[in-house]
Structure formats: C-alpha cells, structure tokens
Deep mutational scan, measured.
Amino acid sequence: EFSMMFKHFDKDKSGRLNHQEFKSCLRSLGYDLPMVEEGEPDPEFEAILDTVDPNRDGHVSLQEYMAFMISRE
C-alpha cells in the first residue's frame, strides 16, 4: 500500500519524492500538516524531514519513505 502511494505521488517517476510531493503524500495519508506559504517556516514538516531525509538532499527515496512509514505504524 505504501509503495503504491509513493508511486502515485512520484509525478516525474524519478524513484524519489521531492519535499512538496512528500508533503502531499503525507496529507493524503491523513497527516494534519498546516498550510504554509512558499518559503515560510514549517516546523512540523521540518521535524518529519529530520527523520525521513536526514541528509537533506531534497528528496525522499522509496527506501527512506518506507522506513518512515513502518516506524509510524
């Protein structure tokens, strides 16, 4: 189920989600993330990124995504 969600939000089929795609994916899974303006701080989402994209390369791989989802179950 999680990998299907990942593929759905991987719009460019790159095998990874940019942070915006990842945020959309989390919202569709029921995460209550506040709407913030582009460039505004988003501490809740930043905290999630610290876990799922610790190297802050700007992308979430399928492996990082799956590890995050399994840790939340």
Rank of each mutant, 00 (worst) to 15 (best):
E37H: 10
R72S: 15
F22A: 02
N18G: 09
E44K: 14
K13H: 10
D53L: 01
A67L: 09
R56D: 07
M69Y: 03
S61K: 12
I48L: 06
L33T: 07
H59R: 07
G39H: 06
C25S: 02
G58F: 00
E64L: 05
R72L: 11
T51G: 08
N55Q: 13
M69W: 07
P54H: 07
V60R: 00
L26D: 01
L29T: 07
L33G: 05
P41Q: 13
A67S: 14
S61V: 06
E38M: 11
T51A: 13
F45C: 02
E40R: 11
M35I: 14
N55S: 11
F68R: 02
M69K: 03
E37C: 11
T51S: 14
D32E: 14
E64N: 15
P43R: 09
L29K: 04
L17H: 03
F68M: 06
S24T: 08
S28V: 08
V52T: 05
E38Q: 13
P41A: 13
F45M: 06
L33Q: 04
F68Q: 03
F2L: 14
F9C: 04
G15V: 06
D32S: 11
E44T: 11
D50N: 12
L49A: 01
N55A: 13
M66T: 12
S61L: 08
T51N: 13
G39C: 07
R56E: 05
P43D: 08
E21A: 06
K7G: 06
E44N: 11
E40Q: 14
D57A: 14
L62K: 12
P34S: 11
H19A: 02
P34D: 10
R72K: 08
M69H: 05
I70K: 07
L26V: 05
G58H: 01
E46F: 01
P54C: 06
L26F: 02
Y65K: 02
M35Y: 15
M5L: 07
D32Q: 13
L49D: 00
V60S: 00
R56C: 04
Y65G: 13
G30R: 04
D12Y: 06
S28I: 06
Y65E: 01
L29V: 10
N55C: 12
L26I: 09
H8N: 14
M69I: 08
N55K: 11
F6V: 03
I70Q: 15
V52H: 02
I48A: 03
R27E: 09
D50V: 02
F6C: 04
